[in-house]
Design a protein around this nucleic acid. Structure first.
Length: 426
RNA sequence: GGAAAGAUGGUAGAGUGGUUUAUUACACUAGUCUUGAAAACUAGAAUACCGCAAGGUGUCGUGGGUUCAAAUCCCACUCUUUCCUCCA
């Protein structure tokens, strides 16, 4: 959500940004909201004047009553009643206008960073850099769920019985590996100076609507029946919600947090052939990082954050690359975004395992996350990034650490979390 | 789940329908005094929005309602504290 003042002052900039994102159908919205805003301000002035009259007149009644001037009181009462009738209509228009304006503003995309490559959709995302050798072994690597099943680590059949499709039982060493990765990720981020947080896994509707659009909400979120609660789709939801309507002490900035949570997603819509197994499921676990910082520092933090993920994957012997989201693929709230993709030696291509985003002040404006810096108040910048989401990450991990005999190498950094074994054997 | 009390500016805390334009204290900012500080004294100061400004409007947990007028009365909800009940 951008500042409406930007539209008042520089409509063309906002329009140019929309064109960069190939959303030409939204160009009209800028003119519409500009007009509505003017209308709203005129109306507000009128209504404020009426409210002013009402207040002064009502104020007089108190004095007149004490003086016992009943007739005058009745006269004024009637006048105020008239004002209220007029106001009723104006207030309804005022409410409607401000709602319309807000709805449109939600649909006007955030101003993207100058460095974002221009492109229509994900096919035009740009590779930034490769890390590690994308090795293609001379033996065949089975589908990840097969690897896991051979190691008695995955039971999808039972999960279908208890919960339906899109769920899994992890067992034995694979389950332990899953936890080990999360524990390692937690300690990895703590060592980078981040504060570990376990947030609520359910949030209220007002927080949900603060962090996502109604559309996203319907597609992603599970609602708890009979309660005003939703299961979180990512810990970012709780973590950003935590700061809703707060003024943060400028001396305590930046807030660098790493949170763990299970994530619940409906995943409405068709799934591709490569989404069998544990690639796309209703419930997974994730270690996330969140930074809330001064606007001037967000570019620097963005760089640091996706590099942490790259470094994390490299310590687990998984080759990765970074892919920059082009203008057309960038979600409306985002200023800039880079995906971290892991190498799949089976598919012989990279696939997404994490996403790092700089939201500028769009999210904080929407939620009211500000700082007070020597009396000057302004919105902060928010960023989020995946450290690791194990079930999907396990795919990359297993494929890249797979030996021809079906065993799995455990990289050194993970061994303390795996009972010091260096291999999972069949 | 049940009962009681409560939610007011950065903090504490008064305010039970109309000079509340939200008392007061602490913390805060500026000034006087001082080599500097402390203390004392003087002044300023909640917040969002509209407005070039003067000024205006809204906001006393949230949402409704009553009234000419609501921090104050009524209803619902949320949260906090204490107690009972239940529970990992």
């Amino acid at each position: 959500m951008i500042d409406i003042k930007l539209i008042r002052e520089n409509k063309e900039l906002v329009k140019k940004n929309i064109k960069k994102k190939f959303q030409d159908h939204k160009l009209q919205l800028v003119d519409d909201v500009f007009d509505l805003d003017n209308e709203y301000r005129k109306l507000k002035y009128q209504a404020d004047e009426l409210r002013k009259d009402r207040n002064t007149m009502s104020g007089k009644i108190g004095t007149l009553m004490r003086e016992g001037k009943k007739e005058e009181v009745e006269d004024i009462k009637n006048k105020v009643k008239d004002i209220n009738t007029k106001l009723l209509d104006l207030e309804e228009q005022e409410y409607e206008l401000s709602n319309n304006i807000e709805n449109i503003m939600m649909n006007i995309p955030n101003i993207i960073d100058d460095s974002v490559p221009i492109g229509k959709d994900d096919s035009e995302n740009l590779e930034v850099k490769k890390y590690g050798d994308p090795v293609i072994p001379d033996y065949e690597i089975p589908y990840h769920s097969e690897i896991m099943e051979k190691l008695s680590g995955l039971d999808l059949d039972s999960a279908r019985k208890t919960s339906g499709s899109g769920f899994y039982f992890l067992t034995g060493d694979i389950a332990r590996l899953h936890s080990a990765i999360l524990s390692y990720a937690r300690d990895f981020m703590i060592n980078k100076g981040f504060t570990y947080v376990i947030p609520p896994f359910m949030i209220r509707s007002d927080v949900v609507s603060g962090v996502m659009s109604f559309n996203e909400m319907d597609v992603m979120m599970y609602k708890i029946e009979g309660e005003d609660l939703y299961l979180i789709g990512t810990s970012e939801h709780s973590m950003i919600g935590k700061f809703k309507d707060t003024i943060l002490d400028s001396e305590k900035l930046p807030y660098t947090l790493t949170s763990y949570s299970p994530c619940f997603r409906k995943e409405k819509g068709a799934h591709g052939i490569e989404e069998r197994g544990v690639y796309r499921i209703h419930q997974f676990e994730k270690q996330e990082m969140i930074v809330i910082c001064e606007p001037k520092d967000s570019v620097e933090w963005f760089e640091k954050m996706y590099n942490y993920t790259v470094e994390f994957f490299r310590t687990l012997d998984v080759p990765v690359r970074t892919l920059e989201c082009c203008s057309g693929d960038l979600a409306d709230l985002k200023v800039k975004s880079i995906d971290v993709e892991a190498w799949s030696p089976r598919q012989k291509k990279y696939f997404e395992v994490g996403s790092c985003s700089n939201l500028g002040d769009a999210q904080s404006r929407r939620l009211g996350i500000r700082t007070n810096n020597n009396g000057e108040k302004y919105f902060l910048h928010t960023l989020n990034n995946t450290v690791v989401a194990p079930p999907r990450m396990l795919i990359a991990f297993l494929e890249n650490n797979y030996n021809e005999d079906g065993s799995i190498n455990i990289p050194e950094v993970l061994r303390p979390y795996m009972g010091n074994i260096d291999k999972i054997n069949i």
